[in-house]
């Protein structure tokens, strides 16, 4: 019965969405904001990648809110999972025996690939204002690199949770501080400072590379902590 009512609801929704899609002007955008940004971004921000100037320049406050949402999600995951393992006193003692190193192929592959992943992640973060990529993508690559190292060989490698949270708080605070410095210079919050530099070189677009570095470190530390919390939790199955 639930299935049939769900089907009815879904078919009505399909009809509605198809009608809306038929009304859309396909192939050209209805918004004017995008055109204004595309015309002014080269002079106002100075980044070659326009998406970066939208993410950190025109909508920097949005990115700050996104980071805080991610922080809230990571803290709630930590809260939910540590509370469940807190009830089991014996879980900490058996922790070492449950985890085995992975097989030969995984261990050697992660040893081979780990420095490469670090270089790729830092490259993506630091070139975010010139080429596709940026703090989010590079941060994810860094997080996956570190947490794969821990997941593959849990006995040999362990990551200090205090260090992770220090990196995360440092990155978050530096993001806000860079934004507030612009306020003291008499400009609006998160406005790019330090001049534009030479267009399309590595040191250009003012404070945008620094902001993306902070975003990358914060996203990487948060996602690595989240993955480790999901992995090391003791759940009775």
């Amino acid at each position: 019965m639930t299935k049939y009512s769900a089907l009815l609801f879904i078919s009505g929704l399909v009809f509605l969405l198809m009608v809306i899609t038929g009304l859309l002007p396909m192939g050209h955008t209805p918004m004017l904001v995008g055109n204004a940004i595309l015309e002014g971004a080269k002079d106002q921000v100075g980044a070659a990648n326009v998406v970066t100037s939208v993410v950190l320049g025109y909508r920097g406050l949005d990115t700050l809110g996104e980071l805080s949402i991610l922080f809230a999600a990571a803290s709630v995951v930590g809260l939910v999972l540590t509370k469940s393992s807190f009830n089991k006193h014996a879980s900490n003692n058996d922790d070492k025996h449950d985890h085995h190193d992975s097989g030969f192929v995984a261990v050697n592959a992660i040893d081979l690939i780990f420095p490469l992943l670090l270089v790729v992640g830092m490259y993506i973060i630091t070139h975010g204002h010139l080429t596709p990529g940026g703090g989010f993508q590079g941060g994810v690559v860094l997080a996956v690199a570190f947490s794969m190292l821990v997941i593959v060989r849990p006995r040999r490698v362990s990551i200090n949770h205090g260090m992770v949270s220090i990196i995360e708080s440092f990155a978050g605070v530096s993001f806000i501080v860079i934004g507030v410095v612009a306020l003291f210079k008499g400009q609006s919050f998160l406005q790019p400072l330090l001049g534009h530099g030479e267009f399309a070189s590595l040191w250009s677009a003012g404070t945008l590379p620094l902001l993306y570095l902070a975003v990358g470190l914060k996203v990487g530390a948060e996602l690595a902590g989240l993955l480790l919390a999901l992995n090391t939790d003791e759940v009775a199955s």
Partner: peptide
């Protein structure tokens, strides 16, 4: 291209890793 890189790193990499951990933990 920015969204494509994000989707490749997060959707295909990190999301699958998280779901695989979930598979292992849920039996």
């Amino acid at each position: 291209p920015d969204v494509a890189m994000t989707e490749a790193a997060i959707g295909a990499g990190l999301s699958s890793l998280i779901l695989a951990i979930g598979l292992k933990r849920l039996g």
